[in-house]
Design a protein around this nucleic acid. Structure first.
Lengths: 184, 184
DNA sequence: ACCTGAACACCGTTCAAGT
DNA sequence: ACCTGAACACCGTTCAAGT
């Protein structure tokens, strides 16, 4: 009886949830950066005692996983127009913009997701490469190369789009030459 | 008088130094990883009280800088044999091996150093590219692209050399085509 | 079911002393 | 000059309670 009443009471005034916690975490990250994201400050932000968050996330690592998933979800996959090169450029530039907004600690983890075949984010890229004439294995290798380049480019110069495009164009030239050679 | 005697005494039995501290830090990193590298555990490792390390490094960040510098110093720059592509492959593979050994937190920082024009590590790469026919500006762009690719490749698959070489070959193909076009 | 509160074993770093 | 020692303001997380 007490339990039910208390639950109703809390639900009315301020129900905690994974979503609210994740939102608060991103707010904290944007305002004060990675080092500000502690379980204790997060709880403070949510006007709750530190341990309340642990009902929703087993530990800090699980919370960070959720942040990475959320960031992966908001990664805009633009429409598929133009030839395979244009489409890859669009997809990779969207990835670049998303990665660029994250602190390095999350960037690394989202980057790994970007190329992991089982994570789903690689699917579209590999498809485009196969439509360009790459076999399944080559498409996987090519996507890894494109992903590696994108992740590294963000790492060394997060905001410099022209540099990014220069290297991407060279890499795509090399890939195009290879797929052309295979076709013949 | 006391000061002098004490100094002599310490110097004889166990003189602390930046070098000894850096060595102990790398030992800690290799054994127990990045999260084990705390100022307190480091002091324990050196059989000294926590604050003793602060005589040699202003704070933890300065110590980490020293670790990155040390890692940069041990980056083997192999002899310059073969054509420009072979030489770039050698230099970048050496970078890959060095980056691969570091925890992600140091990797990012060394990666930035690898492409920073003022850090010295970029010098050899840019030189090789210029010898291949790239102008100064293009050589800088090309080196950035190669560095970005290498850093990203380590990030997503630290130990997979074949993958690394596939993408590197494609990127070098693209760069070669460009320098060929400029020459003509 | 959900949150509180105290506690434990850690951090980096300051400051005032000690030899 | 170099190290000690206590202290401060933080961490993540466990555990036993509270409603």
């Amino acid at each position: 009886v007490y339990a039910v009443q208390y639950t109703v009471h809390m639900a009315v005034r301020n129900p905690l949830s994974r979503e609210r916690i994740v939102d608060a975490a991103f707010r904290l990250l944007e305002q004060d950066g990675w080092e500000a994201l502690s379980m204790r400050r997060l709880a403070q932000e949510l006007d709750v005692w530190p341990m309340a968050v642990y009902r929703y996330f087993r530990d800090k690592d699980e919370l960070v996983d959720a942040l990475v998933d959320q960031a992966a979800g908001t990664m805009e996959l633009p429409g598929t127009e133009g030839d395979w090169r244009d489409r890859l450029c669009d997809v990779l530039d969207a990835a670049r913009v998303t990665l660029q907004r994250l602190p390095p600690e999350l960037r690394t983890r989202l980057g790994a997701l970007l190329v992991a075949p089982e994570a789903g984010l690689a699917g579209e890229g590999v498809e485009i490469l196969e439509s360009a004439g790459f076999g399944a294995e080559q498409a996987g290798l090519a996507w890894s190369a494109l992903g590696a380049y994108t992740i590294g480019a963000v790492e060394i110069a997060p905001t410099d789009k022209a540099r990014f495009e220069y290297g991407l164009d060279r890499l795509l030239d090399g890939l195009e030459a290879e797929v052309g050679a295979v076709r013949r």
